[in-house]
């Protein structure tokens, strides 16, 4: 994809278009900062424009929607709202970022050695997190042949069949409940003896007689030639192995932040989440982080949106404080090493 280069220096570029990025876009657009959002590229994982909510169905806990709202509809509304105030969108992913000094340079999709696609005084990083996979050879071989990254896309193909959902958090339980509309039996496979999911989701799962819980179990392998025919489970307590015959596997074992691009550039914790302090400031002056890319604890659409708003306000104030300053003047804040603001 060829994206026209923008030779001007923008005030704000936002990387990522989930709830955090789009809320930052709404706020910075309303502050007349003409934000540009690098929105990502299509995929069948949560690493796509709109983020993780693009793969969910009913969102019941986003305030303001009495009867719930569909995840993709909510993100379409976020985007339309930001466009109404003049936010611009660049399709594609940032491949390289130069953060050595403001203005920062961003290369989107094409030649990372050529001229940068965008340059910006302030940068908001909201690239989110993507679902973890099991990492088995059989998993990638059988992807699209019984192994799925998208329950809303593929549940339909498992009508009348037996399947497995791997994981014990809200995402796993929500997927399991959704999939009971199609599958006759859903094995919920969890490595512990209790769920991490919220109480209301747990109650719904326990009340659903199509869901069978397989506690203290990990998936050792997925079996099948051409398509999934079963899974091999290992009991975490006694090490015994069980084979379960089934037709589909959905994985929801957690998330990993999309921060590979910023390694060596921004301070991160041991798991790759960007460290923030004083609101949404990162270890680089003028770079702010919002949403799941810096939050492994709450990971809600509403908290992401909230931190996107914070990043927008932080960036706006930072830009205002710099106005009139010498170009290239880097009024460095306290450097890394102080305890980062982790909750």
């Amino acid at each position: 994809m060829t994206i026209p280069h923008d030779s001007s220096i923008r005030d704000v570029v936002i990387l990522g278009s989930g709830p955090a990025g789009l809320t930052a876009a709404i706020y910075t657009a309303r502050a007349s900062l003409s934000p540009v959002v690098v929105e990502g590229e299509p995929s069948s994982t949560s690493d796509q424009p709109g983020g993780q909510l693009m793969l969910t169905t009913e969102v019941e806990n986003y305030p303001g929607f009495v009867d719930g709202v569909m995840g993709p509809d909510l993100m379409a509304a976020f985007r339309a709202q930001s466009e109404r105030f003049g936010a611009q969108f660049v399709p594609g992913k940032a491949r390289r970022v130069d953060m050595s000094a403001s203005p920062f340079s961003i290369w989107v999709d094409d030649d990372p050695e050529g001229a940068p696609t965008l340059r910006s005084r302030a940068l908001i990083v909201s690239t989110g997190a993507r679902s973890l996979m099991l990492g088995l050879e059989s998993e990638s071989r059988l992807l699209g042949h019984g192994v799925s990254t998208c329950a809303t896309c593929d549940g339909f193909f498992f009508r009348g069949k037996e399947i497995a959902v791997v994981g014990g958090g809200d995402s796993a339980v929500e997927e399991a409940l959704f999939l009971t509309k199609f599958a006759t039996k859903v094995n919920l496979i969890h490595r512990r003896d209790q769920l991490r999911a919220s109480k209301i989701m747990q109650q719904r799962a326990f009340a659903n007689d199509r869901i069978v819980f397989r506690w203290n179990s990990v998936v050792e392998d997925i079996v099948g030639n051409g398509s999934v025919s079963g899974i091999i489970l290992r009991d975490t307590l006694d090490g015994s192995r069980t084979t379960v015959d089934l037709d589909g596997v959905f994985v929801a074992i957690g998330h990993v932040p999309n921060t590979a691009l910023f390694e060596g550039l921004l301070d991160m914790d041991a798991n790759g989440y960007i460290l923030t302090r004083d609101g949404t400031r990162t270890s680089v002056d003028g770079v702010f982080a919002a949403g799941d890319v810096q939050d492994h604890r709450y990971r809600q659409a509403v908290t992401s949106a909230g931190s996107g708003c914070m990043a927008a306000i932080d960036a706006e104030r930072w830009l205002a404080a710099r106005e009139g300053a010498e170009p290239g003047n880097t009024d460095t804040l306290a450097t890394a090493g102080e305890p980062a603001q982790r909750r």
């Binding site: 994809m1 590229e41 069948s44 594609g92 992807l143």
Partner: peptide, 8 residues
């Protein structure tokens, strides 16, 4: 299988 960018 799966959504991809135009280039991919």
């Amino acid at each position: 299988v799966g959504a991809k960018s135009k280039r991919q």
